[in-house]
Design a protein around this nucleic acid. Structure first.
Lengths: 138, 138
DNA sequence: CTTGAATCTCTAGTCACTAGAGACATTACA
DNA sequence: TGTAATGTCTCTAGTGACTAGAGATTCAAG
């Protein structure tokens, strides 16, 4: 049995975050010692690792809840899990696309100015003030 | 003079968001009609456009505050503005890098499963449960 | 002058945590 | 067994950048 601190070390999820996950229903209510401290077994460790991994991949708490539901009912269709992963992938791709456009403009903006001179003539500020200076829509 | 609603239409910033920006000090306190409604002039429109543009580029409210300070004091060095833009660019690049890794893993995960069958054997769930199935660290 | 849309302020909610206070539990060592 | 240090408990409140809703007031058009 692990204390919440040990679990935290093993999963790299901070202690208050573990309690938060319990409150949100991602983790079942933990067993307690006579002194009211949480104790976890291997199943708890595995579930928290699952959550951690999914959070790292950008899944929302809600999405993870659905995935856990599916885990807890192995007779249900797998399609739902694939749907969740696929829509997550789409979101990630959209974010990348958007960030690439930003990167392009930001690099143009910060290259345009040599950092010398006064801000009254600053190309960075001018670029931000006037959208027409942008190469493209964003 | 524009009402808050007109300003909202022109800048595509929602009305409550404009009020929020005023409260946060990004916009100066607007003039008011005798009936206490906000009225904006061209300067207000321009400043809000600046804010909108910078937010689109992912600058935080705090960073925008600093940029506005620089705008309001055109005698100050331009270096600070360039620093802010450059660090924003670095953040964007770091995000892209991370998202690319996620994309790779998510696409592997969601391709691995054909969506048929039951979730007891689902590859998506297995992948999320077991970090060792990942190709690489993330 | 009336009607309906726009605006006002205020509070509270969102997401996924994070921080801090003050009390209690456990563990390590003498 | 005593004690000190560390860990854990619950609770409230804060973060960033808004968003939603209530209930009251004001504006513009006909």
């Amino acid at each position: 049995m692990y204390s919440i601190g040990e679990l935290s070390k093993r999963t790299k999820v901070k202690v208050p975050t573990i309690r938060y996950y319990e409150e949100m229903g991602l983790l079942p209510e933990a067993e307690r010692t006579s002194g009211n401290q949480r104790r976890y077994d291997k199943a708890g460790l595995e579930r928290l690792s699952f959550i951690r991994h999914a959070r790292d991949l950008g899944f929302s708490i809600e999405a993870i809840s659905s995935l856990i539901d599916l885990q807890d009912h192995p007779d249900r269709s797998c399609e739902a899990a694939t749907d969740i992963a696929t829509s997550q992938l789409e979101e990630v791709r959209a974010k990348i696309k958007r960030l690439r456009a930003l990167e392009k403009e930001l690099s143009r903006i910060s290259k345009g100015c040599n950092g010398e001179g006064v801000s009254g003539d600053c190309y960075v500020l001018a670029s931000l003030a006037d959208h027409n200076l942008c190469d493209r829509e964003h």
